[in-house]
Design a protein around this nucleic acid. Sequence first.
DNA 1: CTTGCATGTCACCGCATGGTGATGTAAATT
DNA 2: AATTTACATCACCATGCGGTGACATGCAAG
Lengths: 199, 199
Amino acid sequence: MVKNKEVTKQKILEAVESIILTDGFDSLGINAVAKSAGVDKVLIYRYFNSFDELLITFIKSKDFFSNIKLDDGVVKSIKSKEDLKQLVIKILKEQISYIRKNKVLQEILLWELNNKNKVTDFIAKERETNGLDNINFLFKEFNNNEFLLGSASLIIGGIYYLILRAKTVDVFNNIDITSDTGWELIERTIEKLIDLVIL
Amino acid sequence: MVKNKEVTKQKILEAVESIILTDGFDSLGINAVAKSAGVDKVLIYRYFNSFDELLITFIKSKDFFSNIKLDDGVVKSIKSKEDLKQLVIKILKEQISYIRKNKVLQEILLWELNNKNKVTDFIAKERETNGLDNINFLFKEFNNNEFLLGSASLIIGGIYYLILRAKTVDVFNNIDITSDTGWELIERTIEKLIDLVIL
DNA sequence: CTTGCATGTCACCGCATGGTGATGTAAATT
DNA sequence: AATTTACATCACCATGCGGTGACATGCAAG
């Protein structure tokens, strides 16, 4: 019997990730985590207080939502509408490949759609300040009109939906959303759309 | 003790709907349905063979996906690009209000994202022939290019995502996705986008 | 009127869940 | 070396799940 609190905590956090990857967020539970970590479940309560806090700790440790830094510096570096276009396109493309690669994040996004609780409230706050969902931050001082706002929302929502839908289905509206070629089509579409939409 | 197979079957189907409405698709199970219908669960197996078949029967009875008839007649009635624009806009607006009103359908869409099984495979087939997901059907003979295809996919995906997201969150990218005014903004956006995209 | 069948009821199974109180054990303090 | 303290284990609880076999009841055909 090894006695090391930090190692045990780490094993628990790794078990969370492993379960999400293999069985999805819905299969996550105290018993499953304890079993997968090879640790007694009572230790989860002791070290993380509750299952919710374990999840929050896990999500914090992964830092999913602060990969885009939409701070004021970025906003002020936008001089022309061409700058804005290129920045938006770059961010959207980066986010597509980031989310498409990151299965854990996909599971969280899916789980978020289905649940409202302390953990999802926490994630929502993270998104408010960091996430893609607030791309309108970029438009604030430059070219803020409702058409741009609406278009960005539909495009970003569409990206989320198509990525998540690809988990259970291959084709959407005749596009193979599981393949890179399908996503290259979508990226070309986004480039053109952004060009049309930022006037 | 009343003995009437058809009445019992009806009670069971109504119980399915009631549970989806009050607790969501995830709370759906043999025991819950039996309890809510005031019926022994063994009757569900007897009349519907399996829980999966019960779900399929329920979804069939609701006919969620054949409200748009994209048959060849419709396609051939499109004479000009203006016809196509107006038709697409009309369909998208109708679908938005239809899905926004229909909580049961929302729960199914959400559940579909999370699961792959016999029932979701059945739903996928229904969609193939009827649903909004195949709006590219309209473009077939008229103006079929990848930009149109990609744009339609992103817009439709965006609509799905924003409607589903509104179940757990109020604001997305600064738009109130729970209110009619928020959705009017989105509809105006869609009108402009379709106008720009069908060239 | 009785027999047979369709319909409805009940009790139970094995398994998994979230949660807790009592107990064991290794390591640090005195 | 003895005692305290932090870490880890175990056994158990009530509850819910999907699923099934044995039984009770009402109806309709013979």
